[in-house]
Design a protein around this nucleic acid. Structure first.
Lengths: 339, 339
DNA sequence: CCGGTTAATGTAACCGGTTACATTATGGCA
DNA sequence: TGCCATAATGTAACCGGTTACATTAACCGG
């Protein structure tokens, strides 16, 4: 009965093949010539023993984990399937692995995030999954970080990738006002301090102002980019007399679903009575009832670009400090159009 | 100019605090008593130096990676957002990290999957992301594996978690036949060898047989559980005279969307002319136009249960060899009902 | 035939933790 | 007072790779 671990190591392979561990290592990494006979013996022995180099040992010796991390706040939004897909595709292309973790930056101050320099070579940080101070610390260590849907705090030259929010939102509000004659348009906010939400609100305000419509704080509701929250906000709003409104920009598609649900439950018709618009153009948005007028955000592309930037960073290649991916408004029926 | 790596190690901490590395290690892992004064000094020093134990070194020494892997074939289906969410929640609860990788078992035979014993403590294997032989190899090494939406090959006692497919599909086909008088029902298959698809087809056939309807191979189409594929299959089917049909069970909700699109494009009305049903009950399915009649699969719960089983395995706790989560049919409008 | 270059390989230190074992200090009890 | 159990800590080997440096063999031109 062998007490030894059942895992086969490079030394087993070396002994079995009658060479030194250095030779085996060199063969595996193809970073120094190995004689053909030895190579042949090695492939055979490695296959027989079913040898796989131990990732941690390698990581320790080379100081490369061959792993990148993705930090996000949660995964309850369908938005994340395409994002992950985009990221994963470039990560695997580079022969790396992807470590996924959720972390609320709001939680106990100095609670360390579960992924970082100790277990990855670089980090993709989504929105508010890390707080500024933690970003500063990572940067101080020269740790590669790319931000997604978030800009770096002052003086931190971290590359980030996000989508154009303000102009698209402005365009969609313009549409509601100009084409459909709406004047009382609800704006649903995302999570507090969410930058996308911020710029969408800027677009909203810009449009109102351009049309001489007063900004009414009563028309701003909490949607949180979550279906449930949006539904409740909408419901409580509906059950009170004031404010009256004739349209709602839901913040994102997910919240738009919640708005649909609340409106439907209250017997208000979309778009005849209330126009609704979202943001993201999720995969199913064109099949909703009614089809959702929204803004198309290239989510999978965001993932790919972010991944690509991170690998540029890792390889010392030039990096785009800002990747602002274009969006376009998608007019369907929920605004009252008949596309 | 220090050539040394910028990372701070346990030896730095030890020196700075005037103790040995063993003491630091013991404090970190709370596995042996440390005097209060030393503890106090350590927390201070560790905070000052911003010390984080190197995961690989730990992994190497303890032979525990504190990482579990999730292997899947792709992430192009919205189905995966809730699945990942369920898995991630239990993984992080246990203080572990999640490594996500895609891998087509169809690809070059002996091409090693990117995650396994060398970089994780256990694996969640989704559907056909690994082939039987690779499962045998993992099992030979006593490596913890839990299957998701897949049963183990013969004689392999791997725990698996999936959902009830056959009875639910049978119930929904029964419904189409009995309530809506459909007789020519298309069945869309998922990917080849997909077990869910297999059992759904069994349910389909069982229902037909029970109602004395002949099984017509011309009525089974390829849907692949992918929207695009389903749409094309449906379209080509529509453009040819034969077969006639009055309903389609799309295989899953994703494919149902494709069916909706094809039908709509061809000017066929759902459900007046053609009834449609799906499977999964994705988050948006109730908001489709028309709301989709489908089967609710507890996807997030599948993720949680699978994760839980894997941790039971890791901790030597008893494991349920099979977790068959219940499903229920959700009648909405796409079948012709008026809910 | 010899000094020097190059190809192929071996030896052993090192990466940063953990932990078996050894050591020292302290308090209890006969 | 002396002996032993126990608490707190230190030393060094070890986990499984990589790689600087050393070594040997082969080959080449003069």
């Amino acid at each position: 009965m062998t007490k030894k671990s059942s895992s086969v190591t490079i030394r087993n392979v070396a002994r079995q093949a009658g060479v030194s561990v250095a030779t085996v290592s060199r063969y595996i990494n193809h970073n120094a010539p190995v004689s053909p006979e030895v190579a042949e013996r090695l492939i055979k022995v490695m296959a027989e023993l079913n040898y796989l180099p131990h990732a941690a040992a390698r990581h320790l010796a080379t100081r490369k984990a061959r792993v990148v991390g993705l930090l996000l706040t949660n995964m309850t939004n369908d938005y994340f399937a395409p994002l992950l897909n985009g990221i994963e595709s470039v990560v695997s292309q580079h022969g790396y692995n992807l470590l996924v973790a959720t972390h609320r930056s709001a939680s106990n101050n100095d609670f360390q995030p579960p992924i970082g320099p100790h277990n990855t070579d670089g980090l993709l940080v989504f929105a508010a999954s890390l707080k500024d101070e933690q970003l500063y610390q990572l940067h101080k260590k020269k740790f590669p970080v790319v931000l997604i849907h978030r800009t770096p705090p002052d003086d931190l030259p971290l590359p980030f990738v996000t989508v154009e929010n303000k102009a698209a939102t402005r365009a969609i509000i313009d549409h509601l006002i100009e084409v459909h004659g709406k004047r009382r348009i609800i704006f649903m906010r995302g999570p507090i301090h969410n930058e996308d939400s911020h710029w969408r609100e800027m677009g909203y305000k810009a449009s109102l102002q351009a049309h001489g419509i007063d900004y009414d704080p009563a028309l701003v509701l909490a949607g949180e980019f979550e279906r449930k929250v949006a539904q409740e906000s909408m419901s409580t709003c509906l059950s009170s007399k004031y404010p009256e409104f004739d349209a709602v920009f839901a913040g994102d598609d997910e919240a738009a679903i919640g708005v649909f649900a609340a409106l439907q439950q209250a017997g208000r018709r979309v778009p005849e009575e209330i126009a609704v618009a979202g943001f993201d153009d999720q995969r199913m948005s064109s099949f909703l009832n009614p089809p959702l007028t929204t803004v198309r955000a290239p989510t999978e592309e965001v993932g790919r670009v972010a991944g690509q930037q991170l690998f540029n960073l890792l390889q010392g290649l030039p990096v785009d400090p800002v990747s602002l991916l274009p969006t376009e408004i998608i007019i369907r029926r929920s605004c009252g159009c008949n596309h």
